[in-house]
C-alpha cells in the first residue's frame, strides 16, 4: 500500500531527521491514515492521529531502519486510535466518538452497484469498530493490513494463540452481524 520507499543506506536515510521524516511520511501516510480511518471511522481524527504518531517518532528518533520505523508507526497508530477513543469519551466534548461513515453520501454519483458495495463495506467497518478492543485490532491487522498471524502478534505484542482466538471470535461476530443486518 506504500506509495514509495526510502532505502537503508540511501542518502535520504542518512540525511537530517526532518528529511528522513518527510520521506517516511510520504511513503506511509496514506496507508496509516486509512488504517486509522478503519479504526476511528472519522477522517479528521484519523489524520490527526497519524500526524501525532509521526511527531512521536520525531521525538523518539532515530528508528533502527525503515522496517522498525514502519512497525513503530503502525503500532503507534493503533495505540493512538485506542487512546483517542478513550480520550474523546472521557473529555465528553466535541464530536461524537464515532460518526457514521459519510461513504454512502459520497457515493451519490456512483453506479447503484457501487453504492451497494460501499454500503456493505461501510457496515462491515462499523461492525469491526464495535468489536471488543483486541478483536477489533486483530481483525484490522490480519485482514486490512494483511499481516500474518506472527506479524500481528509482534505488532500487538500478544501471543500467536491470542491472535488466532481473537480473529476467530471476531470473524464469527462479524458474520453474525452481517447476517443480522441483511
Amino acid at each position: 500500500m506504500a506509495t514509495g520507499a526510502i532505502h537503508m543506506g540511501s542518502s535520504e536515510w542518512q540525511g537530517t531527521r526532518e528529511q528522513v521524516l518527510t520521506g517516511l511520511f510520504r511513503s506511509h501516510c496514506v496507508e496509516l491514515v486509512r488504517l486509522a480511518y478503519c479504526l476511528l471511522g472519522d477522517r479528521e481524527r484519523a489524520e490527526e492521529a497519524v500526524q501525532d504518531v509521526y511527531l512521536s517518532l520525531f521525538r523518539h528518533w532515530p528508528p533502527r531502519d525503515e522496517r522498525s520505523a514502519l512497525a513503530y508507526l503502525r503500532s503507534g497508530v493503533i495505540n493512538r486510535c485506542r487512546s483517542d477513543q478513550r480520550r474523546i469519551y472521557s473529555a465528553r466534548r466535541g464530536e461524537p466518538l464515532l460518526k457514521i461513515s459519510a461513504l454512502g453520501a459520497q457515493a451519490g454519483a456512483d453506479a447503484a452497484t457501487d453504492v451497494l458495495a460501499r454500503d456493505e463495506a461501510s457496515r462491515l467497518a462499523e461492525h469491526v469498530r464495535s468489536l471488543p478492543r483486541r478483536q477489533r485490532e486483530v481483525i484490522t491487522c490480519r485482514y486490512y493490513l494483511q499481516l500474518s498471524e506472527r506479524e500481528t502478534a509482534e505488532l500487538l505484542e500478544i501471543g500467536i494463540g491470542s491472535v488466532k482466538r481473537h480473529a476467530h471470535r471476531g470473524l464469527a461476530a462479524l458474520q453474525a452481524r452481517l447476517e443480522e443486518s441483511r
Binding site: T22, F25, R26, C29, V30, V33, R34, L35, Y37, C38, R43, A46, E47, V50, Q51, Y54, L55, S101, L103, Q106, A117, R118, E120, A121, S122, L124, A125, V128, I139, T140, R142, Y143, Y144, Q146, L171, L174, Q175
Partner: peptide
C-alpha cells in the same frame, strides 16, 4: 469469510480518497 472481511475492509479503507493535495496538506500541517 476471511476473504470477504478482508475485501470489504480494504474497500472501506481505500474508499477514503487521498489525493496528492491531501498528502501535501497533511505534510504542511505536520
Amino acid at each position: 469469510p476471511e476473504r470477504k472481511v478482508g475485501d470489504l475492509l480494504r474497500a472501506y479503507g481505500e474508499g477514503l480518497e487521498m489525493t496528492t493535495q491531501d498528502i501535501n496538506r497533511l505534510e504542511q500541517e505536520l
